[in-house]
Design a binder for these strands. Structure first.
Lengths: 207, 207
DNA sequence: GTCTATAACCGGATAGAC
DNA sequence: GTCTATCCGGTTATAGAC
């Protein structure tokens, strides 16, 4: 934690941590205050309630999470094989640097907090819808030109997303599977990238 | 709710519902009692604490969840293509009938409740480890005999699991994506099965 | 902007009558 | 086995001094 962080930033950082670890219902305001190194009352000086604080964290997280699917540099002109490989590697690298994102989001989207749906909807309307459409076009065109086999574009996007996210969503289970063997996280992720790329390329490229 | 359910069964059923909807931290004992149609004190007559009640629900759920990966009838003698197709269809059908399972489990495995790890470990030790090993062998043998391409067995299992689970884990997001178009759940799952089977078969069978 | 003290409430758990 | 009443600790949130 940087010493020149403002109080507001310290609170946000601590809140992010605690909400990720404990979830909304398990999070405690006093713990957030303690981790931020500020007085509990200060949180209420900056945020009107636990709900308000959570909403700002969730909004930021959902946005980052969705954006991560589409942060590739200039995909338009790449050929399909390179594009697929680049995407899988970039996406998993991003998730490895932000493992808290899938964790938090998947926990909260199944709750009954209406804020969640509002924010997902906002993200979608803002620009996500357009970008997805762009990807869909890309896949459809590649199908049409014979660069890849003919496939359902949306289902294909979901398949790749599912495989990329799996490691981060299932981490606690995976840890148990590998309990005996001391396996390096980086090594595991490298294998993961290879396996996904391998399956997707062989599954999509023409036979 | 069957009228001849015992009190214990009514409590379990209600607890399962509430824990799934709200998560452990969000669940309230009085709500469980209300849904079960019994007095709150009765819960404590049968279960020593919220923790104890939760543990019994979680144990049962994790067991069902893990078992669902391996409930296929007599896989040993099937050829690879049929086996893969049968597995994907059976697994998604199971999840469609028990959509609460992935929801609940993924929410709780990221918590700090040590019971979770204990139970995962128990499931694994009990028989899961052996069954996974059997599947691993099956895949390795199929690779060796040229029935499928040479692939990493564990990574492949995870890839299929990831794609099967995705729809159920991401349901709230998927709903937003399809908000406008009224799409039938069954139709969606049929597409899902086709897309996964298609990708996996084309990705695994020799070129 | 920051702190202390405290209000107001809620939820898990128990005592004890029936 | 079932119910009522209640305790007790903890949690969000605010009042008010500095």
């Amino acid at each position: 934690m940087d010493i020149q962080d403002t109080t507001r930033e310290k609170i946000l950082k601590a809140a992010r941590e605690v909400f990720v670890e404990k979830g909304y219902d398990g999070a405690r305001m006093h713990e957030i205050a303690a981790r931020a190194g500020v007085n509990k009352a200060m949180i209420y000086y900056y945020y009107s309630s636990k709900d308000a604080l959570f909403e700002s964290i969730l909004k930021e997280s959902l946005k980052r999470f969705f954006d991560s699917f589409f942060e590739l540099p200039d995909i338009v002109d790449m050929e399909a094989e390179k594009l697929i490989t680049a995407f899988i590697h970039a996406h998993i690298d991003f998730l490895a640097q932000n493992p808290y994102l899938p964790k938090m989001i998947i926990r909260e989207i199944h709750g009954s907090n209406p804020v969640t749906y509002k924010v997902i909807q906002e993200c979608f309307d803002l620009e996500l819808g357009k970008i997805i459409h762009k990807f869909e076009q890309k896949i459809s065109n590649a199908s049409a030109s014979g660069e890849i086999r003919s496939v359902d574009a949306i289902q294909t996007m979901w398949n790749v997303a599912a495989m990329n996210l799996f490691h981060f969503i299932m981490k606690p289970v995976i840890n148990v599977f590998f309990m005996n063997k001391k396996i390096d996280e980086n090594e595991l992720l490298t294998k993961r990238k290879q396996a996904i790329t391998d399956l997707v390329l062989n599954g999509l490229l023409p036979r």
